[in-house]
């Protein structure tokens, strides 16, 4: 697992208060991890902070799963 993936999953665990083993690559924040629309906004803010990237609103709307987040960040930092 890449460093980015580990850090993303850690943030998801902390912010959504879910068990680490539920935070799989394909897990959807809303459908699988119990997040609501406000949680997803806050998650994106946390990713921005952690990885020093800017995630524009139209990109943020497409980050629905753990994998979406990892891929966006890896691309942005790549």
């Amino acid at each position: 697992m890449s460093n980015v993936a580990e850090r993303v999953k850690k943030i998801v665990v902390e912010h959504l208060g879910v068990e680490a083993d539920k935070v799989t690559d394909t897990a959807s924040f809303i459908d699988d991890l119990g997040a609501d629309s406000l949680d997803t906004v806050e998650l994106v803010m946390a990713f921005e902070e952690e990885f020093s990237v800017e995630i524009p609103d139209d990109a943020a709307e497409k980050i629905l799963t753990v994998k979406d987040a990892i891929e966006f960040i890896e691309k942005a930092n790549g």
């Binding site: 406000l38 949680d39 906004v41 806050e42 803010m45 921005e48």
Partner: peptide, 10 residues
């Protein structure tokens, strides 16, 4: 403004 939490108002 981008650092304001979505939970701020509620």
């Amino acid at each position: 403004p981008r650092k304001i939490s979505p939970f701020f108002i509620p």
